[in-house]
Amino acid sequence: MAADGIRTPNPVGVRVILITSGVVACALAWGALGLGLSDLVPTSGGLSLAGRFFARAFSPAWQSEARFVPDGTPPLLEVAFEATLQTLILGAAAMSLALVLGLALGFAASSAWWSGAGPESRRGVYGMLRRSFLPFLCGASRLLIVVMRSVHELLWAVLFLAAVGLNDLAAVFALAIPYGGVLAKIFSELVDEAPRESARSLRGLGASGLQTYWFALIPRALPDMVAYGFYRFECILRSSAVLGFFGFPTLGLYIRQSFNATNYGEVWTFLYALLILVVAADAWSGAVRKRVLA
């Protein structure tokens, strides 16, 4: 507190500490990785490849560029459309599972609907349940959420591929588990941070914890939950495209195949298909978020 009564921020501000530690962390990272700027100079092969690849950015392929096209191969644009559709299908199917997981686990991991109850509900069988089972359920769900969301969707995919092999459902589960975990975490945080005044008035009228949760807390958090859900939908489409790199029939599969066959025009066709899908989803979810949060 300065003498003139104007509150000054603490002299060695948090930002200074954070930025300094960031710089130190960068120096340490630089050393740990053994980086040199010379590694940033591409090899001559890499450079010419980059030239050939980026030269096709403005002339994507309209037809297959493969030297040998087997009979019955659909035209390139049809392949691109089908791959985009599969990206959307796997993403949307996974999103529906993730929403179910997120809502169920978000509810189980939240203590808002049972912890604040008055003394009258501490008695009897229900009270015993409340004291023993519900805290256990809550803790177990939180642990489950951490594990679900700490393993990246591509690592879930690697695990599923090793465990069962290539099946489109494996891709759906690989996406749904981490996305479900993130949704559960964010949903329960949003409910915890929702404005409390309606919850307090309902409680004052004698509503139970569960009633307060459903009729006062959830409705207040709902706009943020909808906004976040739409944002994650946009993300899951990107992830679904990338899963193609592991052999699932989404855009990543075709990007990898065409790139490895050095058909760079085709790569750009698929990249633009991905760009259209993602930008459209971005615009849609952005418009929804703007209206919901207004």
């Binding site: 591409p42 090899t43 990338v242 790199f245």
Partner: peptide
């Protein structure tokens, strides 16, 4: 931001090779 990290890395890999960069 539309190009997923994994995809970008896949493309850059051909140019820079498997360095941390």
């Amino acid at each position: 931001r539309s190009i997923p990290e994994y995809l970008a890395a896949f493309l850059l890999l051909a140019i820079f090779g498997p360095t941390p960069w």
